[in-house]
Design a protein around this nucleic acid. Structure first.
Lengths: 192, 192
DNA sequence: CGCGACGTTGATTTGCCTCAACGATTGTGG
DNA sequence: CCACAATCGTTGAGGCAAATCAACGTCGCG
């Protein structure tokens, strides 16, 4: 059992050693190099991914070819194209590695089997989803009510470590603005 | 047991008659008049709300006093300020009725007790949350990558019935634009 | 070394907002 | 049942936030 996953689980539920063992058997460790794809648009999302080290990003490419980042996933985060994963239909998102990364993966059918063997996992993922839902709601709220500068300030306040780690244009793609405009904002902030 | 709630549950889990009875005892039916508050900013969100008839809206009021709608909830939808509900801290959202509405309500402690008595409910709300998460992700994607016109077209395609039911300026507040600009868009569409 | 990735700066354009004014409805108290 | 006030949608002029396009400097890496 990986300590990071174990710690994550124990934050919300308590598993017996046998249950941990069962879960651990369903999980695979994979390594991704920087720039490597974890999932490509059009493919079916086969795994739910738990990041052990490194950083992934899930993003959408619009008709004009511009990338829009839905989420970053660093250590201790889960990521996937959930719709594709649940329905086993083609993904609309890409997921790739922004750094060399280690990822624990679990397949859809294996997870479904685990839900039956370990009902406590339903609780775990309910709570995980609730938290993700709340975070996303906050983001929607900011997107429709704040300026780009405010959204940037909120981002660096909420995720100071990410701000260090990520190239600036990735943050722009997350905030929904152009890299040029983010540059303008940073200039203003350093002057003002 | 209310038929709409029963149908909603049975879409994802199967409950025995005793379990249904247990759940039904934990739930209260309340009626709200049009314009009546279900929850006000600053109060603690005491209930998860299941809409049986009518329509609620959850929204945020920014520093300038402008309303931004997070979600509409019509028949068969759940709504609350989830963060406030879970942590029993002051809500940042308002919820009120856009039409005379009937709502089934369940309190935080009662729900937590039910999770223990009926673990299947963990599964139910996990699935509900997953679907809500997916819908929200789609919305974020549109907010950061599409123009107001595209977002409007998507909205009326995805929620044609809501479009009939709601005043135009409420839709504008959901899309994150001004009523005036939505009016412009509709003019363009009818001309073009 | 040379190329691609990254960030910056400036000129111009555009999507959307603000403010103000105006009909058409709706609804509500007298 | 009418009168008056809100509520709702529309239109137009002007303004600002952010995009687009293009050019340029720097760095890291193959």
């Amino acid at each position: 059992m990986h300590p990071l996953l174990e710690a994550g689980l124990s934050r919300h539920i308590q598993l017996t050693d046998e249950e941990k063992e069962l879960l651990w058997q369903a999980v695979t460790l994979r390594k991704y190099r920087k720039r490597q794809y974890v999932l490509q648009t059009g493919d079916v999302c086969r795994h739910e991914n738990f990041v052990v080290s490194g950083c992934l990003r899930a993003y959408y490419i619009d008709d004009a070819g511009t990338e829009h980042i839905i989420m970053f996933a660093v250590e201790d985060w889960w990521t996937s194209d959930l719709l594709s994963f649940l329905t086993q239909t083609p993904a609309q998102l890409n997921i790739d590695a922004l750094e060399d990364s280690e990822v624990l993966q679990i397949e859809r059918s294996a997870l479904e089997a685990l839900y039956h063997k370990i009902p406590k996992l339903e609780r775990f993922f309910r709570i995980i989803m609730q938290n993700a839902f709340i975070a996303q709601q906050q983001r929607i709220l900011f997107n429709i009510s704040k300026t780009a500068k405010e959204r940037y300030l909120y981002f660096i306040e909420k995720y100071p470590k990410l701000e260090q780690r990520l190239p600036q244009h990735q943050i722009a793609a997350y905030l929904g603005i152009t890299p040029e405009f983010l540059s303008q904002i940073r200039k203003q902030l350093s002057e003002g």
